[in-house]
Write a protein that binds this DNA or RNA. Sequence first.
RNA 1: UGGGGUGUAGCCAAGUGGUAAGGCAACGGGUUUUGGUCCCGUCAUGCGGAGGUUCGAAUCCUCCCACCCCAGCCA
Length: 567
Amino acid sequence: MTDNHKDKAVSNFIRTIIDQDLTQGKHSTVITRFPPEPNGYLHIGHAKSICLNFGLALDYGGHCNLRFDDTNPIKEEAEYVASIQEDVQWLGFDWGERLYYASDYFQELHDFAVCLIDAGKAYVCSLSQEEIREFRGTLKEPGRESPYRRRSIQENRDLFAGMRRGEFPEGSHVLRAKIDMTHPNLNMRDPVIYRILHAEHHRTGNAWHVYPTYDFAHGLSDALEGVTHSLCSLEFEDHRPLYDWFLDELPVPSRPRQYEFARMNLGYTVLSKRKLIQLVQEGYVQGWDDPRLPTICGLRRRGFSPASIRNFCERIGVGKSFSLVDMSMLEHAAREDLNRHSPRVMGVLDPLRVVIVNYPKADEESLEAVNNPEDPEMGVREVLFSREIYIEKEDFRTDPPRKYFRLAPGREVRLRYAYYITCVGMVTEQGTGKVLEVYCRYDPKTRGGSSPDGRKVKGTLHWVSADHCRRAEVRLYDRLFVTADPTADAKKRSDFKEYLNENSLEVLRDCPVEAELAAFEAGSRIQLERKGYFCLDYDSSPDKLILNRTVTLRDSWAKLEKKLAHS
RNA sequence: UGGGGUGUAGCCAAGUGGUAAGGCAACGGGUUUUGGUCCCGUCAUGCGGAGGUUCGAAUCCUCCCACCCCAGCCA
């Protein structure tokens, strides 16, 4: 863990609380936990929570537990347990030996429930699900007490034991905490704490027929693990009184506190399991790791580095107000890290053939190129040059606009790490005027890209030798939705999917790229000079190169050109 | 007056009675063999609104407004 935790941490309300707890001696260490439910893939929103919980533990010299919140066997699967661990690890965090499952505590939790029964603070309720809802009342009207609320302690014990042994059908009974049916907070109106589920659990198999609810299990698990600060999202604020109630009523080994922070929303995408699963299952994207998705595995495949995601999470801060973070923030974090660490390679996305007419036909030569101007230690490589090369179509104009520094008839530019070339002619298509091929002369004295007479050129182009290049498939990704907040806008139309960007993926084939690319392993992150940061897809191989574009480079020419067009 | 929350720049966000940090974006300029990077500069007389307390208020008080969450045997 480097990079982001070196910087002095930005203050936030949770750090303020921890600082107080530490100076007042309320705690001597900080124990947090990341508690995913293993029922889906992690996304960038989870990354914020992971960075917060593990980051705090790291900064304060404490610990962060990875705890799977597996209290609902119907929804949870072992498959997700593995992917979540992989993602947390990939992000760069280490839980050491502290890997836990709520299901580890099923026995303790059960015993706590019996404690409540013995104290007359819990009872078996045999109302149907609909009846329980009716008895709960509404937001503005108080609820009514269940007729089963006055069962004797012995009867409750016997019934709960029967529930546990699987003697009753699902839905026939539940165990409820006996709190207050008139409480203004609905969570306190005798909440269900155990329900009968005859389902096989991914870890405990068929050992149990009753499973604790989140409200009952979560805080007690925190207490059992000695968690000091239990961080969750805002929608659990209403659950805090209940969280506290269980801890106050039961003989717990420690006293954790719950604090709530606002979950992150990212512009032009969606971050809810329900919506993500729709996109995957209905085929709008090609899987959980589709590079257009904000899932951790999608971002990984897209080419984001773990450090860039950590920096992003650090930078957006932690607060309690609802926020929609701008995509440019994530892109900035990606460029910042990738600029420092990714090797440069040349590749042409939209090729235009250039013939260097005064370069000997049979010749070729090797030129030296630096791998990363930001990091000399990354060394240099050889790039082959020859009479026929490809440049980017957009780097040539027959009628260049003002301030266009690239190639045009009669213009001289530099080929990066190679020579100065001057355009002396071209072939255009009959009728359309489309440029098919360009002819240039090179200046042999400018080898390497500088002129002995001190002559300057304003443009530098990337290029690839036609005789020595490889071909690659290049996948250009764009924002998944056409609107910043598809969830909110979906209220105006029928469905958030109406706002999907139909051009979020553009596939380019046979793009000429430096042969050097074949030396990189799948998953490698590189910069295609002047075009952007790319990642070799998992399906890429030296024989079939596939590049995924992570993000473009900033393009001030595109901005200028747009401005010129408007003036 | 059901209960619980939140409002500081286009976006994120510090600030906790002493005169509005920082980042992203944007806009100027410098350096540059990536129109990249880097560097320099500009960007809230203003903190949801209105009153009040105070020598002094984004911070304290009062009222108001807007938005979010809650009626799963989901988490």
